[in-house]
Simulated scan of single mutants.
Amino acid sequence: MRKRLIQISGFLISSLGWLFVLCTMAMDYWRITKIGGQGGSYIIKVAWYWSNLWSDCYTDSAAVTNCREYPVLWNVAYVQAVRGLLMCGLTIGFFAVVCCFVGMECTYIGGSDKTKDKVLFAGAALHFVGGKL
């Protein structure tokens, strides 16, 4: 019973961590700045500048959004490498979640206990590698 409880809690913690990182990668509003609103132009009263890992965007009070991708980052190789490593880490984390689910003692997928322990260990190793990327 204790082994199942440890496996289930470890699975939930690691899976939720992977899911939160995935949600963070998909978020658009990493940094938000309000521009204007204290006088000045009569046409645009308030504007919002927001950015994420992939682009900068600007939205005015008429709800017109202009986005542009970072043009200089395509020339900088290490930034592209960081983006690639983030995607690789998420992919490895997905396979780790699947392996951990199959390898848990409380699931009926995977075969004998010895095989399930190996699959669970492989999932834990994949979580570690995906987290280090």
Results as ranks from 00 to 15, higher is better:
Phe94Glu: 06
Arg2Ile: 09
Gln7Tyr: 02
Ala77Trp: 12
Asp56Ser: 10
Tyr42Trp: 06
Cys88Val: 02
Met25Cys: 10
Ile32His: 01
Val72His: 10
Val102Phe: 03
Val72Arg: 02
Tyr42Lys: 08
Asp60Cys: 01
Asn75Ser: 13
Phe101Trp: 15
His127Gln: 13
Ser9Val: 11
Leu19Gly: 06
Phe11Leu: 15
Gly36Ile: 08
Val97Arg: 05
Gly130Leu: 07
Ala124Glu: 11
Gly130Phe: 00
Ala77Phe: 08
Leu85Arg: 06
Cys100Val: 00
Thr24Trp: 11
Gly103Val: 10
Leu90Ala: 09
Phe94Leu: 14
Thr107Val: 11
Leu5Asn: 09
Lys114Cys: 01
Leu90Ser: 03
Arg4Thr: 14
Ser9Phe: 06
Thr115Asn: 13
Gly36Asp: 12
Gly123Met: 07
Thr65Asn: 02
Phe11Ile: 12
Trp74Asp: 05
Thr59Phe: 00
Ala124Arg: 15
Thr65Ala: 00
Leu5Gln: 09
Tyr70Thr: 01
Tyr49Glu: 14
Ser15Tyr: 04
Val79Phe: 10
Ile35Ala: 07
Asn52Pro: 01
Ile92Met: 03
Lys114Ser: 13
Arg83Glu: 07
Trp54Glu: 05
Leu19Lys: 00
Ala77Ile: 03
Ile13Trp: 07
Phe128Asn: 10
Leu5Ile: 12
Trp50Lys: 09
Thr33Cys: 03
Cys67Arg: 08
Asp28Tyr: 04
Ile35Asp: 10
Thr59Gly: 02
Thr91Cys: 11
Ala125Cys: 15
Asn52Ile: 02
Cys67Thr: 03
Ile32Glu: 11
Val129Leu: 15
Thr107Cys: 07
Val102Trp: 02
Trp30Gln: 07
Trp50Glu: 02
Arg4Pro: 10
Val21Phe: 06
Glu69Trp: 02
Ala96Asn: 06
Lys114Ile: 07
Asn66Tyr: 14
Gly37Pro: 14
Gly84Asp: 12
Asp28Ser: 12
Ser15Val: 12
